[in-house]
Write a protein that binds this DNA or RNA. Structure first.
Lengths: 148, 148
DNA sequence: TTAAGTGCAAATATTTTGCTGTCAC
DNA sequence: GTGACAGCAAAATATTTGCACTTAA
């Protein structure tokens, strides 16, 4: 299956360069891990994978880089209903926001894109005069395979 | 989405009793803090307030009670975009879900009830055959007072 | 009576920070 | 050359757990 990447926002490394942000071997390793991730990763998993590319990567550099990417709106931070532990998960921010559904039975995470979600955010901006920079909709429950 | 069993869900203490769950002085203190809260409280704030009612309340009892209430769907756990620290906030689950908006500038938390949000959850349940037990929509951005 | 609940202390988990040395630009 | 970034170690924050004692039902 091809990557579900339609908008082609260039590589993270390029995006950072465009903003005049310094590139290091450690950042390159971390960015590449995030870019090629097949599933949602937490900070420890990102660290472990990044160290396989550059063994010198330190845990604090991972956190500092995640903070940088968040600040620039290049990644989203997820909780995934805190199904295992209190940590966070990260995913690259691509074209359109999506909803995360966490099955409390089997642990599967599904994603869902909805035009209604877009309308809702629009309504919120209009009615509340609120300028949305980041949004996160997560639901927990039972997926089609687990519900009875 | 099943309608809530009662529009006016008695006191938390009563709800627990109805489920045959044992009541203690410590739980009573914690429940009363949650019930009378005027704003979103985190675990430490709940502890501090509960101790003013019953000085013997321990931090671990607070966490254990929050876990109990979550499990029974009597409270919701919020992140409020983690604006200060990584902790969680709690609020009693009443009739209708609402959206939490966190202003990244002034820190104000606003709530918003939307029929579109209800439609969105309904669409999600239909289209994904997903049975929603808990949902959380949080947005971060600039409130009407802070946007320029 | 007795299973559930509690405080206490210690352990875990997650993230942040101070410092000093290094490196990208 | 210099300011941004790094590793390291330690601190800070947040939550969980084991255990022996207590208590609600």
């Amino acid at each position: 299956m091809p990557l579900p990447q339609t908008e082609i926002p260039g590589r993270l490394q390029t995006q950072l360069a465009e903003r005049g942000i310094r590139m290091t071997d450690q950042r390159r390793a971390i960015l590449s891990v995030i870019e090629t991730a097949k599933k949602h990763l937490d900070a420890s998993q990102i660290l472990r994978k990044a160290q396989r590319i550059d063994a010198s990567v330190d845990r604090s550099t991972v956190y500092r880089t995640l903070e940088l990417l968040k600040r620039h709106g290049m990644i989203d931070e997820l909780d995934l209903m805190h199904m295992k532990g209190e940590g966070h998960y990260y995913e690259r921010k691509l074209g359109r926001d999506h909803i995360h559904m966490a099955c409390l039975c089997c642990g599967k995470i599904s994603e869902f894109v909805s035009e209604i979600f877009e309308s809702l955010k629009h309504q919120l901006e209009q009615d509340c005069h609120f300028h949305i920079l980041v949004s996160r909709l997560e639901v927990g429950g039972y997926c089609s395979a687990c519900r009875r």
